[in-house]
Design a protein around this nucleic acid. Structure first.
Length: 114
DNA sequence: CCCGTGACTCTAC
DNA sequence: CGTAGAGCCACGG
């Protein structure tokens, strides 16, 4: 194979990383991008989610680095995400997700430990 | 090629 | 815990 595509598209990898988030758990854009092999591409991850059309994609499990929903408060997306998270048992208070202290800091807490 | 915009992140005050 | 500024990448005009 003449290496046309050396690897899957960054978009595909990001989507895979998002799908890999366990139900009832959350991850930051930066963490997702990092897990996708694209460190520093948090914005790319956000762009991919903004353009995603997969209804099966758990996009609502992706938050900002501080555990805040990336949508403007009161917006449709904001409510939708908060609603879906709470439906999975995730506590959302004041637009912020109640994360386990180390969830956004230690990838192991998000991807390894359940 | 330059510029503005965005579901971002970090540091500083 | 709040806001402000700079850095960052990708894209459309």
């Amino acid at each position: 194979m003449k290496g046309k595509a050396p690897q899957e598209s960054a978009e595909a990898r990001i989507l895979a990383a998002v799908r890999a988030i366990p139900r009832g758990q959350v991850a930051g854009y930066g963490e997702v991008a990092r897990r996708a092999g694209l460190p520093g591409r948090a914005r790319l991850a956000a762009r991919v989610l903004s353009g995603n059309t997969d209804a099966k994609l758990p996009w609502h499990r992706v938050l900002r680095s501080d555990g805040r929903i990336a949508f403007p408060p009161g917006s449709e997306g904001f409510r939708e995400q908060a609603r879906r998270l709470q439906a999975e048992g995730v506590t959302v208070a004041n637009g912020r997700v109640r994360i386990a202290r180390q969830a956004l800091d230690l990838d192991a807490a998000v991807w390894g430990i359940g």
